[in-house]
Design a protein around this nucleic acid. Sequence first.
DNA 1: CGCCTATTTGATCTGATTCAAACAATGTGG
DNA 2: CCACATTGTTTGAATCAGATCAAATAGGCG
Lengths: 244, 244
Amino acid sequence: MPSTSTAEIVVKKLHSIDPLTEEERTAILTLPLQIRKFARGQDVAREGDQPSHSCLLLDGWMQRYKVLGEGKRQIIAIGVPGDMPDLQTLHLELMDHNLGTLTPCTIGLVPHTALRKVASDHPRLATAFWRETLVDGSITREWVLNVGSRVAYGRLAHLFCEMFVRLRAVGLNDGNTIDFPLSQHVVGDTTALSNVHVNRTIMAMRQDGLISLDRGRLTINDFDRLARASEFRTDYLHIRAVAA
Amino acid sequence: MPSTSTAEIVVKKLHSIDPLTEEERTAILTLPLQIRKFARGQDVAREGDQPSHSCLLLDGWMQRYKVLGEGKRQIIAIGVPGDMPDLQTLHLELMDHNLGTLTPCTIGLVPHTALRKVASDHPRLATAFWRETLVDGSITREWVLNVGSRVAYGRLAHLFCEMFVRLRAVGLNDGNTIDFPLSQHVVGDTTALSNVHVNRTIMAMRQDGLISLDRGRLTINDFDRLARASEFRTDYLHIRAVAA
DNA sequence: CGCCTATTTGATCTGATTCAAACAATGTGG
DNA sequence: CCACATTGTTTGAATCAGATCAAATAGGCG
């Protein structure tokens, strides 16, 4: 998982959903990037902000989240390398949620003006960007289902399946193993479960031989069973091809 | 709530998010529409379909939903007049969820080709369409929060606030009263609560003097208190102007 | 009227939360 | 390199919000 500080990983991500031409690829790679490093737990954009840049997440995991009165945090979306987690600010000026880091992150900031330019120069990239936001919406819909209709066991199983498939799509898997740098507390904020119940459920999944999870590394021991336990299907991710 | 069978209501909806020029307005109104009526409870598109048209919802309420194994249904989104509930199929060919009617509906079907044409002829309409899908995503994110983090009382209060504000944005309110044609069972499928618990919670809200709900008509007796009970804020709806 | 669907109420059960405390791992400064 | 602080994981016990099961009541409609 090298942090090359280029948009190569973003090209991979876009490519996994719809192939890019060589020309489009270089257009992405030559975007004017302001590379910035963020520590874990920092906010990059807050509710009410009107960013003039969007993020290319080059390395690390990010969270989009909302907070309710008594401090309850709900993670709305997780960003992994290759994602553009606030691309929507290109057309929705006002941030209606927070964007922050879950791990130390390397981020490429691109001015909206540059994104608009590349989109108008390369119509298929405009479509690719739109599609990126649509897939984002599709994942969010699946999360409504996950949080609303699955019991804890299936809910966690589904999260593990999703993160595995998404990372694999950009080549960030190591066989059946991926980085999974989330504490059980954070997993709870993602799946709307208490950290205690997350712990008990993960223990059960280990017992059942479905996963191993230790020190930020997750191994899927039996993907099929995990997918069955959570009724996981890949269609909502709209991934066409897996990175070489 | 007349069913005029024109896209006027869609113009109003787009207008509420970002004003249209007269020219753009007529471009929408002259879209080639195939008007169709659907009975309550019918599917218009199913998971796995690859529609070549998108819907303009002219009259009635629609649902986007997913189903889990043992028959559990989760409603992912609700569409009201003016919405384009499957606009995303313009760029995500494969339906990853179902789209159906919650009431009798009047729908204008527009070929994707016609939408692409009008978008390329009127770049600001292309943006408006994109924005429409982004607001859709924003609402879905709020639903993750709603289903994941609010207790039953706040969850229902939030749904009532949202539907009221959305309908008001297109002029479909009558003072503090709106049509609310959902059975308590459907409300349960929307909020991830059992119909029994929905009933008990609504009874409590009536007791508290927040709402009246009878025969498909919902009156918000105290919007402020309802909004406070659910920590409702309008920002995520990205509504700029309310219909005249 | 009789049928069907939706709402309401009661009683019981359960998945998950909360509170509390022990234990393990990681990091920091002296 | 160790003492200590900090953060994360694990386990136990009590409690609760909401689900489930069951049945009564109320509307709407041919």
